[in-house]
Amino acid sequence: MRIPHEWRRRSFWVETAQAYLFLLPALLVIGVFTFYPFVNAFVLSTQRVSLVKMVDGQRIPFYREPVGMANFQALLRDRDFGRALVQTSVYVGITVPVTLILALALATFLNKGLRLRPFFRLAAFLPYITPVVAISLVWQWIYHTDYGLLNYFLGFLGVRPINWLNDPRWTLPAVIILNVWRYVGYQAIILLAGMQSIDKEYYDAATVDGASGLRAWWHVTVPLLTPQIFFVFIIGLIGSFKVFEEIMILFQGPGPLKSGLTMVYYIFNQGFERFKFGQAAAASVILFAIIFALSLFQLTVTQRRVHYER
């Protein structure tokens, strides 16, 4: 093995020592509260954890004993876990594309109506930056069957009052509507910033080639916007898989007949309502596997298909 040239210089080692001093606080916090628990989650998923256990007359907190794959087998048998998996997938499968398509349309409109942008920015950011608990509380009131704003407006269209919060069929739609509303403005602003960084020359060239309007949008805007579209997509995907807080506040539980039970809700329920830490950890590992697989898949797609300017 060849020793790198810079290793021979004393200054390199001085700088290395200094750099690690700079990094120390960050690495300590991230190590203890991100790396360690990440590894620990895998270990815990193969153990049974008792909150307190008497061993030889001593109280041992978080007593752990290995159980192999038993937690994962329990997950497979648990119909609630299957339900959480399916419901989360349905939620993600609808929310992410719907939000993205609406955001893209919105950004296109904003790009044409720039004069409204300052006002619109405020309107778009409001749902994104305000506390989700407060937002969900407001929507709980909006979804009220008899006095809620949404059923009132739907009444104009001749729609009969929908029992948003008590009818299991409407649980996921209620969460989806809330979160599309929450994220569409934010995503549109990001896409808009991308659109504005596209050089005007591309459009001039397209016009000369006889492509304008919708065709220029499809052949110039969308391809050159793929980095931003990808970013928004992946952020949306990962964020959506973690949906939980909205549901807890809207329904004060996992929804009627557990129709709002999601992966994270399941983890929360197993871990902190039933104190089955091992099984909660096993479910976390599966959540991670899904997100990781999606990220990898996206990454490979990106490397081949996504157009990067510069």
Binding site: F38, A41, K242, F268, G271, S284
Partner: peptide, 10 residues
Amino acid sequence: MIPGQMLLVP
């Protein structure tokens, strides 16, 4: 890439 909720129990 690690979902924060995965770290909640540990």
